[in-house]
Computed example of a mutant assay.
Amino acid sequence: MNDFEFDTIIQKIASYSTYMLSGGVFLGEVMDWLNNNAAGVMALLAGATYLTNVYFQVRRRRDAIRARAIEQALIKDQVEAGLRNGTEH
């Protein structure tokens, strides 16, 4: 290993350790902020969870209404087809 390769390795190690230290400091600051504002963050998460639940309930009800309408239309078509053919269902 020559001096150039050794210097490159040392520079990469220094660079990676600086990135890791910087990321650790950033994560520490984020965790400190979350610790100080935990109630607000939890309120936002609770609100987002509630709104997501409402969205999916409305969607499920709308899909059920559509399915019932399609089912009733199919039954109506079958009855009308049976009446045209002279049979009843």
Score class of each variant (00 low, 15 high):
residue 75 I to L: 09
residue 54 V to P: 02
residue 25 V to L: 07
residue 41 V to M: 12
residue 89 H to N: 05
residue 3 D to C: 02
residue 40 G to S: 06
residue 28 G to L: 02
residue 75 I to M: 07
residue 54 V to T: 01
residue 89 H to D: 00
residue 59 R to S: 09
residue 38 A to V: 09
residue 27 L to G: 01
residue 82 G to S: 06
residue 13 I to T: 11
residue 34 L to Y: 15
residue 61 R to Q: 15
residue 57 Q to S: 04
residue 15 S to T: 05
residue 36 N to E: 13
residue 23 G to N: 15
residue 76 K to V: 01
residue 63 D to V: 09
residue 42 M to P: 00
residue 19 Y to N: 11
residue 66 R to K: 11
residue 88 E to H: 12
residue 2 N to H: 04
residue 83 L to M: 06
residue 1 M to K: 15
residue 29 E to T: 02
residue 52 T to E: 08
residue 11 Q to P: 00
residue 53 N to T: 05
residue 45 L to N: 13
residue 72 Q to M: 11
residue 60 R to H: 06
residue 82 G to K: 07
residue 46 A to H: 11
residue 17 S to E: 13
residue 48 A to F: 07
residue 6 F to P: 00
residue 6 F to C: 00
residue 24 G to Y: 02
residue 55 Y to L: 06
residue 29 E to A: 03
residue 22 S to P: 04
residue 21 L to S: 08
residue 37 N to D: 06
residue 69 A to F: 07
residue 16 Y to R: 14
residue 83 L to I: 01
residue 28 G to F: 02
residue 11 Q to T: 03
residue 64 A to P: 08
residue 55 Y to S: 03
residue 51 L to P: 01
residue 6 F to A: 03
residue 53 N to S: 08
residue 51 L to G: 01
residue 50 Y to I: 05
residue 53 N to F: 15
residue 84 R to M: 03
residue 68 R to S: 06
residue 23 G to L: 08
residue 73 A to M: 13
residue 81 A to C: 01
residue 74 L to K: 14
residue 39 A to H: 07
